[in-house]
């Protein structure tokens, strides 16, 4: 277990271009599960690869366990990595795949069998040891990749979208399993994903990246409930946050807080809405509508109504909605940054 730190870490591929990763300062705490979340091209994988030593930084420093490892080869950093493709060695059996890091790290031969046994039973792949990767399912491959990573007890785990090759159902269970696995081994883990559900579900903290810049670092609750700027506000959450511009201020509210007026408790902003379309998703309904009257006449908004609310909605109907005032977020229009509560002219 170790602390991972980056200082002004930067990667520029072509001069005069914006870097893929720009001046990233991070501190991953001991035993923490940190998630890099961002759209494709946000630099999250490049950042991970620089920490792994697979990509050379243009500037900046990487420190693992207090040691400057910026110029060290991957194998001297005490890390293990699971690749998006799993990168299992196709010509070796599962057992030999798991053995490979032990041999490469010159772990005494006498300990090999015991280590393989430990890693494979931890991941429940003991019965697969003599198979080759191509004879395994996606979920099994992912476990083998994890076993290969854990077997030499690294200081830090790096995971690059390890669930993206699994089907949706398997992904949910693998997510839960991975969280449990992390709690059990307690190794400092950095996890890259573009899937906000994975990030929210697994991360102790989430780093939201866009265009190679850290937009926010915080617990899942912080990045969701108190987004640092309009990018984070709209990137997290599905459907994204509704944003309204008035003068120098942008007001935002999540679709789940735009609710039928009948549910209002406490002070709330009333909004009248003409329904455009309704998506019935079983557990909830997504209502796409257009505001009527007032300053925001014609603005599109989205509401998310749980199945427990009995009201019925259909296209072209007009309904009264409200947003509780304490659920409003405010951003500066110029910078997009979050600000405190502001006067906002709804009319």
């Amino acid at each position: 277990m170790a602390v991972v730190e980056t200082r002004k870490l930067t990667k520029v591929y072509a001069k005069a271009e914006l870097g893929a990763v720009n001046e990233v300062d991070l501190l991953v705490r001991e035993g923490e599960f940190l998630v890099f979340l961002g759209p494709s091209g946000s630099g999250k994988t490049t950042l991970l690869r620089m920490i792994a030593g697979l990509e050379e930084p243009t500037r900046g420093e990487v420190r693992i366990g207090g040691r400057d490892v910026t110029r060290l080869a991957p194998r001297d950093r005490g890390i293990a990595m699971v690749f998006q493709s799993y990168a299992l060695y196709p010509h070796l059996t599962v057992r030999k795949n798991i053995l490979f890091p032990l041999q490469a790290q010159k772990v005494p031969r006498a300990r090999h069998a015991e280590k393989v046994e430990w890693a494979s039973s931890l991941l429940g792949i003991g019965h697969l040891l003599e198979r080759r990767p191509r004879e395994l399912s996606g979920g099994e491959r992912q476990r083998v990749a994890l076993a290969r990573a854990i077997v030499r007890e690294p200081q830090v785990f790096l995971l690059d979208e390890p669930l993206s090759n699994l089907d949706a159902k398997l992904r949910a269970s693998a997510r839960e399993e991975l969280s449990r696995f992390h709690k059990r081994v307690g190794t400092t883990t950095i996890y890259v994903t573009h899937d906000q559900i994975e990030a929210m579900a697994m991360g102790d903290r989430v780093v939201v990246l866009a265009q190679g810049v850290v937009r926010q670092i915080g617990t899942p609750r912080e990045v969701y409930d108190q987004p640092a700027d309009t990018f984070v506000a709209t990137f997290l959450g599905s459907p994204p946050m509704n944003l309204m511009e008035a003068g120098e201020v942008i007001a935002g509210f999540r679709p789940e807080h735009l609710l039928p007026a009948s549910l209002a408790t406490g002070p709330a902003v009333p909004l009248r809405l003409r329904v455009a379309t309704v998506e019935y998703l079983g557990a909830e309904r997504i209502v796409y509508g257009v505001l009527l009257g007032g300053r925001f006449d014609g603005q599109k908004v989205v509401s998310r109504i749980p199945a427990t609310v009995p009201a019925a909605y259909a296209a072209d109907e007009t309904h009264d909605f409200v947003v509780p005032e304490d659920r409003l977020e405010f951003f500066e229009r110029a910078s997009g940054k979050r600000t405190g509560r502001r006067e906002f002219a709804w009319r």
């Binding site: 792994a52 030593g53 697979l54 080869a73 991957p74 194998r75 890390i79 293990a80 990595m81 690749f83 998006q84 493709s85 990168a87 299992l88 060695y89 196709p90 490979f100 890091p101 490469a104 790290q105 290969r148 030499r152």
Partner: peptide, 15 residues
């Protein structure tokens, strides 16, 4: 050969 595989070997400790 996918680039990931030699990279995985490098991370696993192989020279």
């Amino acid at each position: 050969i996918p680039k990931d595989i030699p990279e995985a070997a490098a991370v696993d400790g192989a020279g």
